[in-house]
Amino acid sequence: MATYKVLKRLTDIAKLIESHPEITKKELLERLLQDYDLDIAERTFERDKKVLELDYGIVINYNYHSRGYSLEENEDALNQFFKFTKFAAMAEIYENGIKDYKSFQKWVLPEDSSSFTEVEHFETIIHAISIHHQLSFIKENYYGETKKEYTVSPLCIKEYANRWYLIAVAEGENYIRNFGIDRLSALKIKKSTSKKIEDFKEQLKQYDQVVGLNYSESQNEEAEEIVIKAHNNQLKYLRSLPIHKSQICIDGTDTDWGKVTYHLKPNYEFEMQILKLGNMVEVLEPKWFRDKVKEHIDEMYHMYR
């Protein structure tokens, strides 16, 4: 795996080509130096181009007519790569912090250090996934104040709201579950072979249709169009931190209010995200979801009367 220094260079190259399609090699190298203070040789660029494709699925195409480079359309691969480099950057910050703790304390102000408690389990989980072995652990139920032992086929790890979750299939079952990694203890890799992630691709796609993790809460089985009225000022924040990848923001022209649309299955997490926006948004469609959000607001209003 590339060091963070190399990852940073690969990210800069990918972002530059993404924002300037058909950029020539000469322009690319000049802009890397000018915008990123990155002086690389042509041979290094060619090598990095191969690494991006072979290791990260980011394909850079060359157009012989324009003599320019463009990224092959693969939004998922690109977003996943950028997310990975951010995670690697954070890991490097914390690693450097251990080496220079005084500087770390001055420069890094984490909001909640508890979000890093589950990182200690990553090595065991990822190793179990990579060698296709089952994993056993004890899971604590905070609400019921109980503990239960599980043996699972670990498939992947998913992040949501500053927490990490193990997506796995429990022994004797044939459907995926979410396990909050911060609630797990006594992790052990078993000798038994686990189920393959390829057999659960259709189930895993359900996460694409929701905010967060709960894909079985929506009133309808299929994703639907959600239309929300939003103040133009709020649209700026939504654009910088989208609630869901299907989000489309449309500025209002004659008024201060624009519109946001989503294509998803509304669940509790999505409801909470909308409620967090307060009086800067109003759910318009569908009616059943508008009524559900209104019900939350009515309940809160009666509590404060």
Rank of each mutant, 00 (worst) to 15 (best):
K292R: 15
T151S: 02
V108R: 02
H20T: 09
A2H: 14
D37N: 15
H244Y: 04
D182Q: 13
L275Y: 04
L235M: 01
Y301L: 07
A77E: 07
G180M: 12
K86M: 15
E285A: 10
L277D: 09
K196R: 13
T261H: 04
N96A: 11
Y69V: 00
K8Y: 07
D199H: 04
I243P: 00
L135P: 06
K148D: 03
E221A: 15
F84Y: 15
A161E: 15
E173D: 07
L71I: 05
E72S: 11
F45K: 02
I98K: 14
L187D: 03
R290C: 03
Y64K: 15
G57S: 13
L155N: 05
Y150R: 06
T11D: 11
G258F: 12
M272E: 13
Y56C: 07
S136N: 04
T124C: 04
K191S: 06
E75F: 11
S240M: 14
L38V: 06
D76E: 15
F200Q: 02
G278K: 03
T117V: 13
E145R: 12
N232K: 11
G180K: 14
K265D: 03
V260K: 08
L277G: 00
R305E: 10
Y94C: 10
A91D: 06
I93G: 04
G212C: 05
G97P: 10
E140V: 06
N279F: 11
E75T: 11
S153T: 01
D35M: 08
S246A: 13
L241Y: 03
L16A: 08
L284E: 00
D199I: 03
N267Y: 08
K259V: 10
L7N: 04
I197Q: 14
Y304S: 12
E159V: 02
D35K: 02
Y101M: 13
I157F: 00
K15H: 07
K245H: 01
V108A: 05
K8S: 11
N74M: 00
L264A: 07
K158G: 04
K25H: 01
D298F: 14
I93P: 01
N267S: 12
N267T: 07
N232W: 15
E282W: 03
T151N: 01
L16C: 09
E202R: 15
L277Y: 08
E217A: 09
V283T: 07
L184R: 08
L33R: 12
N214I: 04
Q247F: 01
L204H: 08
F270D: 06
Y207D: 02
E53V: 12
T44A: 06
K276H: 14
F82N: 05
L155Y: 02
F84G: 13
L32D: 08
M90D: 11
E295G: 02
E140I: 06
E173C: 11
E269I: 08
Y304T: 13
T44N: 09
I250G: 03
R43V: 13
E225D: 02
R239F: 00
I250S: 05
E202Q: 14
G57H: 13
L54V: 14
D39F: 08
R31T: 01
K106W: 01
R177P: 04
I23H: 05
L10F: 10
I176A: 03
E224P: 00
D55M: 14
K139W: 09
T85N: 06
K205C: 09
I60Q: 00
Q273V: 05
Y304K: 14
N141A: 15
L29C: 09
I131Q: 05
D48G: 01
H132Y: 04
